[in-house]
Design a binder for these strands. Structure first.
Lengths: 149, 149
DNA sequence: TTTTCTGCAAATGCTTTGCATGGGA
DNA sequence: TCCCATGCAAAGCATTTGCAGAAAA
C-alpha cells in the first residue's frame, strides 16, 4: 500500500478514536507507515528528532503503544529489546532478518494457511495468529563479507 | 529423546568444554533436558530452589547462557522478557503458544524446508535458522472458557 | 593448590510513569 | 476553555556484573 494513503488511514483511525492530532504524532505515524524499513523505536526517535529536536523517547513509546493497541502496527518483538515495527502491513507475515546488518525484509511467499489448518485440525488448538522469522545473511552482507576474504 | 540420556549428553558436553560439575549446574541441566515444559528462567529457578534453597537467579542466568552458547538449548525469546527454553530439542522447530495459560507445545508437523529452499533461491538470502510460532488458545483453555459461559 | 563457581548486592539499560507545562479542538 | 499530549526526570524491573568466599579438580 502507498505510504501516504496508509498514513492518512492511520491518522483517520486515531482521529476516530478521539486522539488529538499533534505534529509529533503525525511524524511518528509517517515513519510507521513506511513498511520497508521496519524501524526500531530508536530509529523512529532519530527520524522524528530530525523535525522536532526536543521530542522525547517517552512520546515515541507512548504513541507506538497507542497505535499498536489499535492494531495499526505489527510489532516484531525481540528478546534483546530491539523491537521492530511495521505499520504498512500490520498483519502477520513472514520476515527475513539479517543477523549481520539487522535489516528486515518481507519475502514474497505463500501464506501458512495449509499448515495452520492442519495444526488446528490435528491438535484442537485454536490458532489466532502466528509469527515466522527466517534468520540469515542478506545478499548485501554476503557481498561485503566476500570483499574481506 | 529420553530425559536422562539428554541430561548425560549435556553434562558430557559441559565437561568437555572445561566447565566444572556443580550440583546447581546439574540441577539446571536436568530441568532443561525436559522439553515438555519449555521452562522460563523463573520456572527453572523455582525448581532448582526446591533442592538448593539458597540458589540465586544469577546462577540460573549464567548457566542458561553458557548452555545456550554451546548450542545445547533453544531459546524462545519474547519481547516481554518471558523467555522459554528447550534443552531437549535445541534446534528450530515450530511451537504452539497458548496466549491464555502460556503453555508451549511442539506440534507434529513437517518442517519448513520447502519454503526455506524457495526463499533462498528467490532472494539470495542465506538462511541459517528460522522461528515459527503459532499463537492461540489451547484445548484445555478452550474448555475452561466454555465453563464460564 | 589453582581456578572456576556461587550468592549477594550493586549496576545496567530499556521502558514506563508522574507531574507540570504546553498545545489541540 | 477544557483536556489531552508532551518533555523531563524519576521510577521500575528483568538481567548482568563485581566481588569475596566456597567448592570442584
Amino acid at each position: 500500500m502507498d505510504v501516504n494513503a496508509r498514513t492518512d488511514q492511520m491518522m483517520a483511525r486515531l482521529r476516530e478514536e478521539g486522539y488529538k492530532i499533534t505534529p509529533q504524532r503525525i511524524a511518528i505515524v509517517k515513519v510507521l507507515a513506511e513498511s520497508k524499513g521496519h524501524p526500531s523505536v530508536e530509529r523512529i526517535y532519530e527520524t522524528v528528532q530530525g523535525v522536532f529536536p526536543t521530542v522525547s523517547m517517552a512520546t515515541i513509546y507512548r504513541n507506538v503503544m497507542i497505535i499498536k493497541a489499535l492494531g495499526e502496527v505489527l510489532e516484531l518483538g525481540f528478546a534483546d529489546g530491539s523491537n521492530r515495527y511495521d505499520g504498512n502491513k500490520p498483519y502477520p507475515h513472514p520476515h527475513m532478518i539479517c543477523i549481520n546488518c539487522k535489516r528486515v525484509t518481507d519475502p514474497e511467499v505463500g501464506s501458512l494457511e495449509d499448515m495452520t489448518q492442519t495444526l488446528s485440525a490435528e491438535t484442537g488448538f485454536q490458532i489466532i495468529s502466528h509469527r515466522l522469522d527466517f534468520f540469515g545473511i542478506c545478499r548485501s552482507c554476503q557481498r561485503k563479507k566476500a570483499n574481506f576474504q
